[in-house]
Design a protein around this nucleic acid. Structure first.
Length: 343
DNA sequence: TATGCGTGGCC
DNA sequence: TGGCCAAGCAT
Protein backbone atom coordinates (compact mmCIF):
# COMPACT_ATOMS: atom_id res chain seq x y z
CA UNK A 1 0.00 0.00 0.00
CA UNK A 2 2.72 2.56 0.80
CA UNK A 3 4.07 1.95 -2.71
CA UNK A 4 0.79 3.15 -4.21
CA UNK A 5 0.79 6.23 -2.01
CA UNK A 6 4.32 7.31 -2.88
CA UNK A 7 4.00 6.59 -6.58
CA UNK A 8 0.82 8.62 -6.82
CA UNK A 9 2.39 11.56 -4.99
CA UNK A 10 5.47 11.47 -7.22
CA UNK A 11 3.32 11.28 -10.34
CA UNK A 12 1.14 14.14 -9.09
CA UNK A 13 4.17 16.34 -8.46
CA UNK A 14 5.34 15.77 -12.00
CA UNK A 15 2.10 15.56 -14.00
CA UNK A 16 -0.57 17.27 -11.92
CA UNK A 17 -2.32 20.20 -13.58
CA UNK A 18 -1.74 23.76 -12.49
CA UNK A 19 -5.25 24.77 -11.39
CA UNK A 20 -6.25 28.06 -9.73
CA UNK A 21 -7.37 26.49 -6.44
CA UNK A 22 -4.06 24.68 -6.13
CA UNK A 23 -2.37 27.99 -5.39
CA UNK A 24 -4.15 28.50 -2.08
CA UNK A 25 -4.76 26.76 1.20
CA UNK A 26 -7.33 29.27 2.34
CA UNK A 27 -10.07 26.97 3.66
CA UNK A 28 -12.77 29.32 2.35
CA UNK A 29 -11.33 29.31 -1.18
CA UNK A 30 -10.89 25.54 -1.03
CA UNK A 31 -14.51 25.23 0.08
CA UNK A 32 -15.73 27.36 -2.82
CA UNK A 33 -13.71 25.32 -5.31
CA UNK A 34 -14.90 21.99 -3.93
CA UNK A 35 -18.55 22.97 -4.05
CA UNK A 36 -18.22 24.26 -7.62
CA UNK A 37 -16.44 21.08 -8.68
CA UNK A 38 -19.26 18.85 -7.48
CA UNK A 39 -20.52 17.06 -10.60
CA UNK A 40 -18.93 19.75 -12.73
CA UNK A 41 -15.91 19.74 -15.02
CA UNK A 42 -12.70 21.51 -14.12
CA UNK A 43 -12.65 23.59 -17.32
CA UNK A 44 -16.18 24.81 -16.64
CA UNK A 45 -15.42 25.76 -13.06
CA UNK A 46 -12.24 27.79 -13.56
CA UNK A 47 -13.79 31.12 -14.72
CA UNK A 48 -16.65 30.83 -12.20
CA UNK A 49 -14.20 30.19 -9.37
CA UNK A 50 -12.15 33.25 -10.27
CA UNK A 51 -15.15 35.56 -10.64
CA UNK A 52 -16.72 34.28 -7.45
CA UNK A 53 -13.65 34.96 -5.34
CA UNK A 54 -13.23 38.38 -6.90
CA UNK A 55 -16.82 39.20 -5.96
CA UNK A 56 -16.71 37.52 -2.55
CA UNK A 57 -13.06 37.30 -1.48
CA UNK A 58 -13.75 36.45 2.16
CA UNK A 59 -16.36 34.58 4.20
CA UNK A 60 -17.53 37.94 5.54
CA UNK A 61 -18.05 39.31 2.05
CA UNK A 62 -20.12 36.29 1.01
CA UNK A 63 -22.10 36.29 4.25
CA UNK A 64 -23.08 39.92 3.73
CA UNK A 65 -24.11 39.44 0.11
CA UNK A 66 -27.74 38.95 -0.78
CA UNK A 67 -28.84 35.76 -2.44
CA UNK A 68 -29.54 37.36 -5.81
CA UNK A 69 -25.94 38.55 -6.03
CA UNK A 70 -24.60 35.10 -5.13
CA UNK A 71 -26.82 33.35 -7.66
CA UNK A 72 -25.91 35.92 -10.29
CA UNK A 73 -22.30 34.82 -9.88
CA UNK A 74 -23.39 31.17 -10.11
CA UNK A 75 -25.69 31.71 -13.08
CA UNK A 76 -24.99 29.10 -15.77
CA UNK A 77 -23.04 26.75 -13.53
CA UNK A 78 -26.02 24.61 -12.61
CA UNK A 79 -27.11 22.78 -9.46
CA UNK A 80 -28.06 26.10 -7.92
CA UNK A 81 -28.85 24.57 -4.58
CA UNK A 82 -25.09 24.28 -4.13
CA UNK A 83 -24.78 28.05 -4.19
CA UNK A 84 -27.59 28.57 -1.72
CA UNK A 85 -26.18 25.97 0.66
CA UNK A 86 -22.67 27.41 0.36
CA UNK A 87 -24.11 30.82 1.15
CA UNK A 88 -25.94 29.41 4.17
CA UNK A 89 -22.87 27.48 5.29
CA UNK A 90 -20.58 30.48 5.10
CA UNK A 91 -23.11 32.60 6.96
CA UNK A 92 -23.05 29.98 9.68
CA UNK A 93 -19.25 30.07 9.80
CA UNK A 94 -19.34 33.84 10.20
CA UNK A 95 -22.07 33.74 12.83
CA UNK A 96 -20.84 30.75 14.83
CA UNK A 97 -17.09 30.59 14.27
CA UNK A 98 -16.03 34.19 13.77
CA UNK A 99 -15.53 33.69 10.06
CA UNK A 100 -13.02 30.86 10.49
CA UNK A 101 -13.88 27.55 8.81
CA UNK A 102 -13.80 25.06 11.70
CA UNK A 103 -10.85 22.68 11.82
CA UNK A 104 -12.91 20.21 13.79
CA UNK A 105 -14.12 17.56 11.34
CA UNK A 106 -17.55 17.09 12.89
CA UNK A 107 -18.21 20.82 12.99
CA UNK A 108 -17.19 21.14 9.35
CA UNK A 109 -19.31 18.20 8.31
CA UNK A 110 -22.35 19.72 10.02
CA UNK A 111 -22.30 22.83 7.83
CA UNK A 112 -25.01 23.16 5.17
CA UNK A 113 -23.91 21.70 1.84
CA UNK A 114 -20.82 20.06 3.35
CA UNK A 115 -21.03 16.30 3.04
CA UNK A 116 -18.42 13.68 3.72
CA UNK A 117 -16.47 14.41 0.55
CA UNK A 118 -16.36 18.20 0.87
CA UNK A 119 -15.51 18.00 4.57
CA UNK A 120 -12.60 15.69 3.82
CA UNK A 121 -11.37 17.81 0.93
CA UNK A 122 -11.28 20.96 3.05
CA UNK A 123 -9.73 19.09 5.98
CA UNK A 124 -6.95 17.46 4.01
CA UNK A 125 -6.16 20.30 1.60
CA UNK A 126 -6.56 23.34 3.85
CA UNK A 127 -5.79 21.88 7.27
CA UNK A 128 -3.36 19.10 6.37
CA UNK A 129 -5.53 16.54 8.13
CA UNK A 130 -5.40 12.85 7.31
CA UNK A 131 -9.03 12.71 6.25
CA UNK A 132 -10.02 10.50 3.30
CA UNK A 133 -12.18 11.51 0.37
CA UNK A 134 -14.17 9.42 -2.07
CA UNK A 135 -15.58 11.00 -5.19
CA UNK A 136 -16.33 9.62 -8.64
CA UNK A 137 -12.65 9.61 -9.57
CA UNK A 138 -11.52 7.88 -6.40
CA UNK A 139 -14.30 5.35 -6.78
CA UNK A 140 -13.12 4.48 -10.27
CA UNK A 141 -9.42 4.36 -9.36
CA UNK A 142 -9.91 2.20 -6.29
CA UNK A 143 -12.43 -0.08 -7.98
CA UNK A 144 -9.82 -0.84 -10.62
CA UNK A 145 -6.71 -0.92 -8.45
CA UNK A 146 -8.35 -3.22 -5.91
CA UNK A 147 -10.69 -4.92 -8.37
CA UNK A 148 -13.83 -4.05 -6.45
CA UNK A 149 -16.63 -5.72 -8.40
CA UNK A 150 -19.62 -4.86 -6.24
CA UNK A 151 -22.05 -2.27 -7.54
CA UNK A 152 -21.23 1.39 -6.91
CA UNK A 153 -23.76 3.21 -4.76
CA UNK A 154 -24.68 0.36 -2.44
CA UNK A 155 -23.92 0.86 1.23
CA UNK A 156 -21.45 -2.04 1.32
CA UNK A 157 -19.42 -0.67 -1.60
CA UNK A 158 -19.48 2.86 -0.21
CA UNK A 159 -18.25 1.58 3.14
CA UNK A 160 -15.47 -0.39 1.48
CA UNK A 161 -14.32 2.59 -0.62
CA UNK A 162 -14.14 4.96 2.34
CA UNK A 163 -12.31 2.32 4.32
CA UNK A 164 -9.73 1.81 1.58
CA UNK A 165 -9.30 5.56 1.11
CA UNK A 166 -8.84 5.97 4.86
CA UNK A 167 -6.09 3.36 4.87
CA UNK A 168 -4.22 5.13 2.08
CA UNK A 169 -4.36 8.72 3.27
CA UNK A 170 -2.18 8.70 6.45
CA UNK A 171 1.29 10.11 5.80
CA UNK A 172 2.83 13.27 4.45
CA UNK A 173 0.80 15.74 2.42
CA UNK A 174 -2.62 14.11 2.79
CA UNK A 175 -4.26 16.88 0.75
CA UNK A 176 -1.90 16.37 -2.15
CA UNK A 177 -2.36 12.63 -1.93
CA UNK A 178 -6.14 12.97 -2.10
CA UNK A 179 -5.80 15.27 -5.07
CA UNK A 180 -3.36 12.85 -6.70
CA UNK A 181 -5.96 10.09 -6.43
CA UNK A 182 -8.57 12.32 -8.09
CA UNK A 183 -6.11 13.63 -10.66
CA UNK A 184 -5.24 10.10 -11.71
CA UNK A 185 -8.94 9.41 -12.20
CA UNK A 186 -9.35 12.59 -14.23
CA UNK A 187 -6.25 12.30 -16.42
CA UNK A 188 -5.26 8.62 -16.64
CA UNK A 189 -7.79 6.28 -15.10
CA UNK A 190 -10.67 7.71 -17.12
CA UNK A 191 -14.09 6.08 -17.56
CA UNK A 192 -13.45 5.28 -21.20
CA UNK A 193 -10.16 4.46 -22.88
CA UNK A 194 -8.01 4.74 -19.76
CA UNK A 195 -4.36 5.59 -20.45
CA UNK A 196 -2.85 2.62 -18.66
CA UNK A 197 0.37 3.11 -20.64
CA UNK A 198 0.99 6.31 -18.68
CA UNK A 199 -0.27 5.09 -15.31
CA UNK A 200 2.18 5.18 -12.38
CA UNK A 201 0.56 2.27 -10.55
CA UNK A 202 0.06 -0.39 -13.22
CA UNK A 203 2.08 -2.87 -11.20
CA UNK A 204 -0.44 -2.59 -8.37
CA UNK A 205 -3.56 -2.65 -10.55
CA UNK A 206 -5.54 -5.84 -10.09
CA UNK A 207 -8.03 -4.96 -12.80
CA UNK A 208 -5.28 -4.43 -15.36
CA UNK A 209 -3.72 -7.77 -14.46
CA UNK A 210 -6.98 -9.48 -15.33
CA UNK A 211 -7.87 -7.32 -18.31
CA UNK A 212 -10.93 -5.92 -16.60
CA UNK A 213 -10.12 -2.22 -16.45
CA UNK A 214 -12.91 -0.99 -18.71
CA UNK A 215 -15.49 -3.20 -17.00
CA UNK A 216 -14.94 -1.51 -13.64
CA UNK A 217 -16.43 0.09 -11.67
CA UNK A 218 -19.83 -1.60 -11.93
CA UNK A 219 -22.36 1.21 -12.06
CA UNK A 220 -26.06 1.32 -11.45
CA UNK A 221 -28.42 1.74 -14.35
CA UNK A 222 -29.79 5.19 -14.97
CA UNK A 223 -33.43 5.90 -15.42
CA UNK A 224 -34.28 7.54 -18.72
CA UNK A 225 -35.16 11.24 -18.43
CA UNK A 226 -38.78 12.25 -18.02
CA UNK A 227 -40.21 14.18 -20.96
CA UNK A 228 -41.92 17.43 -19.96
CA UNK A 229 -43.83 19.80 -22.24
CA UNK A 230 -43.90 23.36 -20.97
CA UNK A 231 -45.22 26.72 -22.03
CA UNK A 232 -43.20 29.82 -21.20
CA UNK A 233 -44.48 33.39 -21.43
CA UNK A 234 -42.23 36.31 -22.17
CA UNK A 235 -44.38 39.18 -20.95
CA UNK A 236 -42.94 42.58 -21.72
CA UNK A 237 -43.76 46.21 -21.26
CA UNK A 238 -42.19 49.16 -23.08
CA UNK A 239 -40.10 49.14 -26.22
CA UNK A 240 -36.50 49.40 -27.34
CA UNK A 241 -33.93 50.03 -24.63
CA UNK A 242 -36.71 50.66 -22.11
CA UNK A 243 -38.25 47.28 -22.68
CA UNK A 244 -38.73 45.22 -19.55
CA UNK A 245 -39.50 41.52 -19.09
CA UNK A 246 -41.59 40.22 -16.23
CA UNK A 247 -39.77 37.54 -14.26
CA UNK A 248 -40.77 35.52 -11.26
CA UNK A 249 -38.55 34.08 -8.55
CA UNK A 250 -39.11 30.40 -7.90
CA UNK A 251 -38.48 28.61 -4.65
CA UNK A 252 -39.07 25.17 -6.09
CA UNK A 253 -36.54 22.37 -6.38
CA UNK A 254 -35.99 23.05 -10.07
CA UNK A 255 -33.97 26.25 -10.55
CA UNK A 256 -34.62 27.19 -6.93
CA UNK A 257 -33.85 30.79 -6.06
CA UNK A 258 -33.48 31.82 -9.67
CA UNK A 259 -35.54 34.32 -11.60
CA UNK A 260 -37.27 33.11 -14.75
CA UNK A 261 -40.13 33.72 -17.13
CA UNK A 262 -43.50 32.29 -16.04
CA UNK A 263 -43.84 28.66 -17.08
CA UNK A 264 -46.41 25.92 -16.71
CA UNK A 265 -46.99 22.50 -18.17
CA UNK A 266 -48.55 22.83 -21.62
CA UNK A 267 -50.53 25.96 -20.78
CA UNK A 268 -49.34 29.53 -21.32
CA UNK A 269 -52.44 31.03 -19.73
CA UNK A 270 -51.86 28.96 -16.60
CA UNK A 271 -48.28 30.20 -16.49
CA UNK A 272 -49.51 33.79 -16.38
CA UNK A 273 -52.18 33.02 -13.82
CA UNK A 274 -49.80 31.19 -11.50
CA UNK A 275 -47.37 34.08 -11.79
CA UNK A 276 -50.12 36.51 -10.84
CA UNK A 277 -49.75 38.44 -14.06
CA UNK A 278 -52.48 39.91 -16.25
CA UNK A 279 -51.37 40.22 -19.85
CA UNK A 280 -52.46 40.07 -23.45
CA UNK A 281 -51.25 36.67 -24.58
CA UNK A 282 -50.38 35.91 -28.20
CA UNK A 283 -52.37 33.00 -29.60
CA UNK A 284 -49.42 31.20 -31.17
CA UNK A 285 -45.93 30.53 -29.86
CA UNK A 286 -43.04 32.53 -31.29
CA UNK A 287 -40.55 29.75 -30.86
CA UNK A 288 -39.61 26.45 -29.30
CA UNK A 289 -36.75 25.65 -26.96
CA UNK A 290 -35.35 22.35 -25.80
CA UNK A 291 -33.39 21.93 -22.61
CA UNK A 292 -32.01 18.62 -21.37
CA UNK A 293 -31.24 17.99 -17.72
CA UNK A 294 -29.93 14.81 -16.18
CA UNK A 295 -33.39 13.53 -15.31
CA UNK A 296 -35.67 15.58 -17.52
CA UNK A 297 -36.01 16.58 -21.11
CA UNK A 298 -37.84 19.90 -21.33
CA UNK A 299 -39.61 21.00 -24.50
CA UNK A 300 -40.80 24.55 -24.17
CA UNK A 301 -43.22 26.50 -26.36
CA UNK A 302 -42.40 30.19 -26.02
CA UNK A 303 -45.25 32.73 -26.09
CA UNK A 304 -45.15 36.51 -26.21
CA UNK A 305 -47.41 38.67 -24.11
CA UNK A 306 -47.72 42.34 -23.30
CA UNK A 307 -48.30 43.48 -19.77
CA UNK A 308 -48.36 47.22 -19.33
CA UNK A 309 -49.40 47.05 -15.70
CA UNK A 310 -48.74 44.69 -12.88
CA UNK A 311 -48.07 44.60 -9.19
CA UNK A 312 -44.49 44.03 -8.17
CA UNK A 313 -43.33 41.97 -5.21
CA UNK A 314 -40.28 40.18 -3.83
CA UNK A 315 -40.97 37.35 -6.25
CA UNK A 316 -42.36 39.17 -9.28
CA UNK A 317 -41.03 42.22 -11.07
CA UNK A 318 -39.98 43.55 -14.48
CA UNK A 319 -36.32 43.46 -15.54
CA UNK A 320 -34.41 45.41 -18.14
CA UNK A 321 -31.72 43.49 -19.99
CA UNK A 322 -29.20 45.20 -17.77
CA UNK A 323 -31.02 44.09 -14.61
CA UNK A 324 -30.69 40.44 -15.64
CA UNK A 325 -27.01 40.45 -14.75
CA UNK A 326 -27.72 41.26 -11.13
CA UNK A 327 -29.69 38.09 -10.33
CA UNK A 328 -29.47 34.39 -11.01
CA UNK A 329 -31.18 33.07 -14.13
CA UNK A 330 -30.97 29.60 -15.60
CA UNK A 331 -29.60 28.67 -18.98
CA UNK A 332 -33.13 27.63 -19.90
CA UNK A 333 -34.32 31.18 -19.23
CA UNK A 334 -31.48 32.50 -21.37
CA UNK A 335 -32.56 30.22 -24.19
CA UNK A 336 -36.17 31.32 -23.89
CA UNK A 337 -35.21 35.00 -23.99
CA UNK A 338 -32.83 34.40 -26.89
CA UNK A 339 -35.56 32.61 -28.83
CA UNK A 340 -37.86 35.56 -28.25
CA UNK A 341 -35.51 38.42 -29.00
CA UNK A 342 -33.08 36.54 -31.28
CA UNK A 343 -30.10 37.27 -29.06
C1' DT B 1 -31.91 3.65 -0.13
C1' DA B 2 -33.49 5.96 -4.31
C1' DT B 3 -34.24 10.11 -6.37
C1' DG B 4 -33.79 14.88 -7.95
C1' DC B 5 -30.91 18.51 -8.96
C1' DG B 6 -27.88 21.83 -14.40
C1' DT B 7 -24.74 22.26 -17.67
C1' DG B 8 -21.58 21.66 -21.50
C1' DG B 9 -18.27 18.60 -23.62
C1' DC B 10 -17.04 14.43 -25.60
C1' DC B 11 -16.98 10.55 -29.10
C1' DT C 1 -26.31 12.57 -33.05
C1' DG C 2 -27.40 11.42 -28.42
C1' DG C 3 -26.07 8.90 -24.57
C1' DC C 4 -22.87 9.41 -20.88
C1' DC C 5 -21.15 11.74 -18.07
C1' DA C 6 -18.07 15.30 -13.90
C1' DA C 7 -14.16 16.70 -7.60
C1' DG C 8 -21.97 15.36 -4.16
C1' DC C 9 -25.62 16.67 -1.33
C1' DA C 10 -30.10 16.60 0.78
C1' DT C 11 -34.20 14.38 1.50
Amino acid sequence: MPAIRQKLLDWYDEAGRDLPWRHTRDPYAVWVSEVMLQQTRVETVIPYYQRFLESFPTPQALAEADEDAVLSCWSGLGYYRRARLLHAGVREVVAQYGGKVPEDADARRALPGVGRYTAGAIGSIAFDKEEPIVDGNVTRVLARLLRIETQVGTSATTKRLWSEAAQLVPGERPGDFNQALMELGAMICTPKRPRCDSCPVTEQCEALARGEVERLPVKRERRPPTEVDLAAVVATRGRGADRQVWLVKGNQPLFGGLWGVPMAEDNARAALTEAGLRARLASAPVGEVEHVLTHRRLRVDVYRASAAQGSESDTRRPFTIEDLEKVGISTLTRKVLAATFRG
